[in-house]
């Protein structure tokens, strides 16, 4: 299918869904570029699965519009969906059928899939997810991870332009997780757009080129991974025995908003090793909010002031920090 005019595999505008008075998704604007691996992040109940259901035409939006592969959804569902493989809210199969029979049935449901090589394609997909041995076992005998693998195999049975995977590594062992990562990487390499929802941030960090963050049904961030991270505060970390001098210099560069004192953990001197402040090395950390000034000028200023710089680092926040920053600390599910 030709890419849409926008060059976006998925585009939503002002997409909303309410269940009665509960607003599961609020005025969501998503833009998933072709060929990207797009991470869709958010805490439990933030509306990820609901969004995916709307993208796939399973649920009707309360308002707003969706275009998938350049066609409106759900109107063009029968034309769009043959090009989309998906895993929605976990795998689901007939427990009394074998894994292979399950895949054959779902493949038969697609009027555009060729009957001639159905078995071959299904067997290949089963091998891909490592279920070749267990293919003829009834699904009720599958473990959680085996079902998850079968679900992924289903999404892979035909060659798709777009894969929508809702928490694909849920329940997988480390090998399985790794395999899925490699699989996604290779699919992405072949030009497939992959849309992955997850709350496993490390995973997203390793796989994705783009991401969006949901909180409470609202999109709170969207962009390339680098853009997302840079949206947060970086930190300058300096290892030096001359902590006070370093702080003075940094203050002069405008990196110490609170002045001298280390308040609220904005700056900290961390004793390092057994040595005291006089002979040993201290660590000075200061926030570096706007990526200004440039690192080299910070080091130059420190050295010029005679600070003995034994280590210098710029720490980006992890995606997890950024995530918590965007979606809040609370453990309770919102609403």
């Amino acid at each position: 299918m030709a890419p849409g005019d926008t060059g976006l595999a998925i585009e939503t505008s002002q997409l909303s869904k309410s269940f009665g008075t509960r607003h599961a998704v609020n005025n969501l604007d998503l833009a998933v570029p072709h060929g990207s691996v797009f991470g869709f992040l958010g805490p439990n109940g933030s509306g990820k699965t609901t969004t995916i259901r709307m993208l796939l035409g399973l649920a009707t939006p309360t308002s707003g519009s969706i275009s998938v592969l350049g066609r409106p959804m759900p109107a063009a569902g029968q034309d769009v969906l043959p090009h989309v493989g998906a895993l929605v809210e976990g795998p689901a199969f007939y427990p009394f059928l074998s894994g292979r029979s399950n895949l054959l049935r779902l493949d038969a449901a697609n009027p555009r899939s060729a009957a001639a090589d159905r078995r071959r394609r299904v067997d290949r997909a089963l091998d891909t997810v490592g279920l070749g041995q267990a293919a003829r076992l009834a699904v009720h005998a599958y473990s959680l991870g085996m079902k998850q693998r079968l679900g992924i195999a289903n999404a892979l049975a035909t060659d798709h332009e777009l894969l929508v995977l809702d928490e694909p590594t849920n329940g997988l062992d480390p090998q399985g997780t790794r395999e899925v990562r490699h699989l996604i990487a290779s699919l992405a390499g072949a030009g497939t757009t992959v849309f992955i929802s997850s709350h496993l941030l490390s995973e997203i960090e390793q796989m994705c080129t783009h991401a969006a963050v949901m909180s409470n049904g609202n999109r709170v961030a969207q962009g390339t991974l680098a853009e997302l991270r840079s949206g947060g505060n970086g930190t300058v970390v300096i290892h030096t025995p001359d902590a006070d001098a370093a702080r003075t210099v940094l203050g002069g560069l405008g990196l110490l908003p609170g002045g001298e004192a280390a308040q609220g953990g904005d700056t900290a001197v961390v004793p390092h090793g057994e040595t005291g402040e006089e002979g040993g090395t201290g660590v000075v950390q200061v926030p570096w909010p706007d990526d200004e000034p440039a690192p080299e000028s910070i080091v130059a200023a420190l050295v010029a002031a005679g600070v003995r710089v034994r280590g210098f680092a710029l720490e980006r926040p992890s995606l997890e920090d950024r995530f918590v920053e965007l979606t809040g600390e609370g453990f309770d599910v919102a609403r």
Binding site: G57, L81, A109, N110
Partner: peptide, 17 residues
């Protein structure tokens, strides 16, 4: 079973299903 959603995105149109 949850298979309804997978049939629909296969896609088996609702009328055909």
């Amino acid at each position: 079973h949850g298979t309804l959603r997978y049939l629909l995105i296969a896609p088996a149109s609702r009328g055909r299903l």
